[in-house]
Amino acid sequence: MNIRHHFDDATLMAYAAGSLSQGMALLVACHLHWCPECCERVRQAEAIGGVLLDKIAPLPLHDSALDQLMARLDDDMAMEVSSLVKPAEIPAGVPAPLHHYINSSLEQLPWKRLGYGVHHIDLNLGGKGTTRLLKIAPGVSVPHHTHGGNELTLILSGSYTDEIGRFSVGDVADLDGEVHHQPLVDTDQDCICLIATDAPLKFTGLMGRLVQPFIGM
């Protein structure tokens, strides 16, 4: 796998600090499943965080803190072994962190039509923003848009091209409101992406603005 597009430092620092939303943290974890370079950058960020924590004066804990911690550990240990997913059971092309949520191959998912040549699955993770899988047919493009906040995209299958460059399997697009683009699927196979946002997209064309209330993006 030849990964050419990676996360910004700020995104990996936020992941290491545990401050990303559930959807964005899931997407980062999926990329790390494939990318040794970003794994090393996360380790460096965690090391920096550890040094900073060492410089913070400790605060007294509540009397029940230890009991609460032990109770949480007991709950984790109570997980049945049969519920764990063995690596051999994870379908090809599905990062292990994502398989925990979909428990299926990408091809067998119950895709829902979103528009011409576009299907999706909302992972319904709750919280701010949305996290969804998007499947776009060959030759189809997403309407030209920018972003009301941050958007992370991980390519799981196929590829697309936009104003930034070409993105293929394992690549991530780490975007904000300063980026305007129109991704176009540039091969003869579907492009399947995992996308996490913390605010709705801002479509710049008339057609995009007209359909946005119906597609929920």
Rank of each mutant, 00 (worst) to 15 (best):
residue 76 D to K: 06
residue 77 M to N: 09
residue 78 A to W: 07
residue 79 M to S: 12
residue 80 E to H: 14
residue 81 V to C: 06
residue 82 S to T: 14
residue 82 S to N: 09
residue 82 S to D: 13
residue 85 V to Y: 07
residue 86 K to V: 01
residue 86 K to D: 13
residue 86 K to S: 14
residue 86 K to R: 15
residue 88 A to V: 15
residue 89 E to D: 15
residue 90 I to H: 10
residue 90 I to A: 11
residue 91 P to K: 12
residue 92 A to W: 08
residue 92 A to D: 14
residue 93 G to W: 09
residue 94 V to R: 03
residue 94 V to S: 04
residue 94 V to L: 08
residue 95 P to K: 10
residue 96 A to G: 11
residue 96 A to E: 10
residue 97 P to E: 01
residue 98 L to E: 02
residue 98 L to K: 03
residue 100 H to P: 00
residue 101 Y to T: 06
residue 102 I to N: 05
residue 104 S to D: 10
residue 105 S to C: 05
residue 106 L to P: 09
residue 106 L to Q: 12
residue 107 E to S: 14
residue 109 L to I: 13
residue 110 P to V: 05
residue 110 P to Q: 02
residue 111 W to D: 04
residue 111 W to Q: 08
residue 113 R to F: 01
residue 114 L to V: 02
residue 115 G to P: 00
residue 115 G to A: 14
residue 117 G to K: 10
residue 117 G to W: 11
residue 117 G to I: 01
residue 118 V to Q: 02
residue 118 V to T: 06
residue 119 H to N: 11
residue 120 H to P: 02
residue 120 H to M: 06
residue 121 I to K: 03
residue 122 D to R: 07
residue 122 D to V: 02
residue 122 D to S: 09
residue 122 D to L: 03
residue 123 L to C: 11
residue 123 L to H: 09
residue 124 N to C: 13
residue 124 N to T: 09
residue 126 G to Q: 06
residue 128 K to W: 00
residue 129 G to P: 06
residue 129 G to K: 04
residue 129 G to V: 05
residue 130 T to N: 10
residue 130 T to K: 15
residue 130 T to A: 10
residue 131 T to Q: 02
residue 131 T to E: 01
residue 132 R to G: 11
residue 132 R to P: 00
residue 133 L to Y: 01
residue 133 L to P: 00
residue 134 L to Y: 07
residue 136 I to G: 01
residue 136 I to N: 04
residue 136 I to F: 07
residue 136 I to T: 12
residue 137 A to R: 08
residue 138 P to W: 09
residue 139 G to S: 09
residue 140 V to R: 13
residue 140 V to P: 04
residue 141 S to F: 02
residue 141 S to R: 12
residue 141 S to Y: 06
residue 141 S to V: 00
residue 142 V to M: 04
residue 142 V to H: 00
residue 143 P to I: 06
residue 144 H to W: 01
residue 144 H to Y: 10
residue 144 H to E: 09
residue 145 H to I: 07
residue 147 H to G: 04
residue 147 H to C: 06
residue 147 H to I: 07
residue 147 H to M: 10
residue 147 H to T: 08
residue 148 G to W: 08
residue 148 G to C: 07
residue 148 G to F: 10
residue 149 G to L: 07
residue 149 G to K: 06
residue 150 N to M: 05
residue 151 E to Q: 13
residue 152 L to W: 02
residue 152 L to G: 01
residue 153 T to P: 00
residue 155 I to E: 02
